[in-house]
């Protein structure tokens, strides 16, 4: 598996994920290739942003854990039309913070798993504005699992 996987459409990405046992994916995501994939996923988030968030900009902070390798943190600054991917801390305190393991992040970003399911499996922790958290998947067109 290489970082190119993410260039594919969601569906083929999901198929690639399904073929890999969780433990293997966990390990792979701690490698340099794994990190590259995670960063690509973040960079591509704006392309999927459907918009529609009213009011001023809101920041969703993603904290992606992949021990023993380093945690990857990004801020997505969301406005009515735009999603800006930034390094943490450039835009003040986040509206909501989502903390999850790398596999769960990849699952969520590929609509393989729903955020609410991950939360109820104890894999996703949220802090801050619950309403924004609940809307995130819809805002990124990930509401319906494939």
């Amino acid at each position: 598996m290489t970082a190119e996987v993410n260039q594919d459409e969601l569906a083929s990405f999901r198929a690639a994920l399904a073929a890999l046992p969780r433990a293997e994916l966990t390990t792979w995501l701690t490698t340099a290739d794994g990190e590259a994939l995670l960063r690509t996923v973040f960079e591509q988030m704006p392309e999927r942003y459907t918009g529609g968030l009213l009011g001023g900009p809101q920041t969703a902070r993603w904290v992606v854990e992949r021990p023993p390798a380093g945690t990857i943190v990004y801020d997505l600054v969301l406005t009515e039309d735009d999603c800006d991917v930034r390094d943490t801390g450039l835009w003040g305190a986040p509206t909501v913070t989502l903390t999850l393991d790398a596999v769960s992040f990849v699952e969520m970003a590929s609509a393989t798993a729903q955020g609410m399911d991950l939360l109820f499996q104890g894999r996703l922790h949220i802090d801050g504005d619950v309403r924004l958290a609940m809307r995130l998947e819809t805002l990124f067109g990930l509401g319906e699992p494939g």
Partner: peptide, 18 residues
């Protein structure tokens, strides 16, 4: 009914389902 992240996390701790 779920007014805060804390309330949602508490529910998630109570049960595997909503």
């Amino acid at each position: 009914i779920i007014g805060s992240a804390a309330a949602l996390m508490e529910r998630a701790g109570n049960s595997p389902v909503l």
